[in-house]
Amino acid sequence: LPGIKSLKQNHRKRIFSAKFKWHVINYYQTHAESFAQVAAKFDLLPSQISIWRQAFIKYGYDALKPHRKGRSPKVKKQTKKQKQKLVEKKEIDQLREELARTKQELYNTKMDRDILKKSLALFGPSKPGKKRK
């Protein structure tokens, strides 16, 4: 008898496939039976069928698929050597960036100097003193 079986307490956690959940929801919607009757037939709790049905209506079939519960696992703790390597890598990256900035500044300064040299060659040195009107 499925009715007596449903009154027994299950002490282990059962995992249901999305296909099974969909089958239960489909059975409930196509037959004129209550949640309690369908739950007894499939050896489930009526509230569980209701939860599955609401999730299916709201989010679709993907909501019925099993998913991980609880906290995500902690990030692995790093050893002192790994931390030191990370610090060294960060320092090296900072030094490389600083070197690149310095090279860019030097290049810009050289370009400015070359422009000034060429302008001096073309226009001559500027003489302080008389100005033409």
Rank of each mutant, 00 (worst) to 15 (best):
L106I: 10
R68I: 05
N108I: 10
A63Q: 00
K76W: 00
R53I: 00
K69D: 02
K80D: 13
R53N: 04
K77S: 15
A55S: 01
P46M: 01
D93W: 03
R96Y: 11
Y61M: 10
D43F: 02
K110L: 15
K103C: 03
K77W: 05
H23K: 13
A40N: 14
Q94F: 09
K74M: 08
H31T: 15
K127G: 00
V75R: 11
T30D: 03
Q37R: 02
K131T: 11
G124K: 01
Y61S: 11
K21V: 10
K76I: 10
D114N: 12
Q94A: 01
F42H: 07
D43T: 01
G129E: 07
Y61Q: 09
F35M: 06
D112A: 15
D93M: 08
A55Y: 00
G3S: 13
K118A: 08
D62F: 06
K81W: 04
I15S: 12
I4Y: 13
P128E: 09
K83M: 10
I49S: 06
L122D: 06
R14I: 13
L45R: 01
G124Q: 06
H23P: 03
L120Y: 09
K77F: 05
S6Y: 08
K131Y: 05
T30I: 10
Q82H: 06
Q9N: 11
K77G: 15
I115C: 07
L120N: 07
K19L: 15
L95N: 02
R113L: 14
Y59E: 03
K117H: 09
K83I: 06
E98F: 01
N10D: 08
T109Q: 13
E98V: 07
L44C: 07
G129P: 00
I15Y: 04
K81N: 06
Y28P: 02
R113G: 02
E98N: 07
K41D: 09
R68S: 06
F42Y: 04
T102M: 09
F123A: 05
A18C: 15
E97Y: 07
T30Q: 03
V38M: 02
N10G: 14
K8P: 00
F16Q: 11
T109K: 12
W22Q: 15
Q104K: 12
Y28S: 03
S50V: 01
L99P: 03
Y28C: 04
A39P: 10
K13V: 14
E105G: 11
K83T: 09
P125M: 01
T79M: 08
I115R: 08
E33W: 06
K19A: 15
T102I: 03
I25V: 09
K130D: 12
N26L: 11
I15G: 10
F20R: 08
K58C: 01
F42V: 04
I4D: 13
A55F: 00
K133Y: 14
P125C: 02
K76T: 02
K85Y: 11
E88N: 07
Y28M: 05
V24Q: 05
W22M: 15
R101T: 09
G60E: 03
A18K: 15
K83S: 09
I115Q: 07
Y59D: 02
W52H: 01
V24K: 04
W52E: 03
S119H: 10
N10Y: 08
K133T: 10
R53L: 11
Q82N: 11
